[in-house]
Simulated assay, not measured.
Amino acid sequence: MSTRAPISGVVTTFDNAATLEACLASLAFCDERVVLDSGSTDATRDIAERYGARVSVRPFEGYGPQKQHAIDLATHDWVLLLDADESLTDAGRAMIERTLQAPRADGYRLPRQEWLFWRWSHAGARANWQLRLFRKSRARMNTVPVHAAPTLDTGAPQDLDAPFRHYGEPHLADRVEKVNRYSSGMVVNKRRKPIRGLGLRIVLQPYVAFLKLYIGKRYFLNGWAGFFAARTHAFYTFLKYAKVLEAQRERDQSP
């Protein structure tokens, strides 16, 4: 029987006591679990140590740099990168175990199943595929603020039907707070180069974003939860462009 390549489960944390146990339990099959904490004040680090994770602490310097440092701490070349509010399903674990017996790519995109306020997303809705399983020697985190993600140095990742779950915000107020925070974080990135048709983007892009999620990804199958998710995503799209315009006007009016 073939043995699989060793793998490091990597997680970044900050006050994630409510969800970290499920995350680390789902990574029990990994050859090591690495947790990089940003200075939690709750039981996050105690939980990580109880699950046998190798815990380090580093002040938060941005999503991309923090995740990259966590990846660099991994002992093994193959990394499974999860957020602390995510967990791998049993089916996902089995698929990864089989795939790493004879990997055919340097990275794999996995389908993320979303918790939408009070329910899991409908099976007929389209999953959000993300690069989460990769050789750390062939991948780096990109520099996009807030939504930083790993990218392969060369070649394209393959899709692997190894689902993982994201325990999203349980309340609409939590989602709105996150939308406001994330849109502010995107302003610096959006201002790095001129945005053509900024006014039109402010007006039209929220509608496009809503339709892409509600119709394109079939969130209409999720009832009101899907509608709320699509509408708050449209609001996020509006805010990130509106805040760029606001910053431009404030800069132009400054003495």
Rank of each mutant, 00 (worst) to 15 (best):
L221W: 10
L213Q: 07
Y236C: 04
A234C: 14
A225L: 01
F220M: 01
V208S: 14
L200I: 08
Y236W: 11
L221M: 07
F227D: 03
N222C: 11
L198M: 03
R201T: 02
A234G: 15
G226K: 01
R196E: 14
G223V: 04
P206A: 10
G216Q: 08
L211T: 15
L204G: 09
I195R: 01
F210W: 15
L239Y: 05
F210C: 08
A230W: 03
R196I: 08
L211Y: 15
R218D: 06
A209M: 12
G197S: 08
G199Y: 04
T237D: 14
R201D: 00
R218F: 06
A230P: 10
K190R: 14
Y207F: 15
P194V: 11
G199I: 10
G197I: 02
R192Y: 13
L239N: 05
K190V: 04
I202W: 08
I195C: 02
I202M: 12
W224F: 07
A234N: 14
T232R: 02
L204N: 12
R218N: 07
V203W: 11
V203D: 03
A225G: 02
G223S: 00
F228E: 12
R192S: 10
G223M: 00
K193L: 10
K217C: 05
V203L: 12
F210M: 11
A229P: 01
F238R: 10
I202K: 07
H233W: 03
F210T: 07
G223Y: 01
F227Y: 10
F228K: 11
G199C: 06
F227W: 14
R191P: 00
F228R: 09
Y219L: 09
P194A: 10
T237C: 12
A209C: 11
A225F: 00
L213W: 01
N189C: 06
R196M: 07
L221N: 06
R191N: 01
A229V: 10
H233G: 12
R196T: 09
R191Q: 04
F227V: 08
R231I: 15
Y207K: 12
V208H: 13
F238W: 15
I195S: 01
I215V: 13
G226Y: 00
L221F: 12
F235N: 11
R196G: 09
A229G: 07
R231Y: 12
R201G: 00
R196C: 02
W224N: 05
T232L: 05
Q205F: 10
L239H: 05
Y236K: 05
K190E: 09
R192K: 14
L221C: 02
K193F: 07
R192N: 14
N222H: 00
K193I: 12
N222A: 03
K212G: 10
F238T: 13
A209D: 11
A229T: 11
N222T: 04
G226R: 00
L221A: 03
G216F: 06
A234Q: 13
P194F: 04
P206S: 13
L213S: 02
K212H: 10
G223C: 01
A230V: 11
Y219K: 04
N222R: 02
F235D: 09
Y219I: 04
G199E: 08
F235K: 08
R218Q: 08
G199R: 05
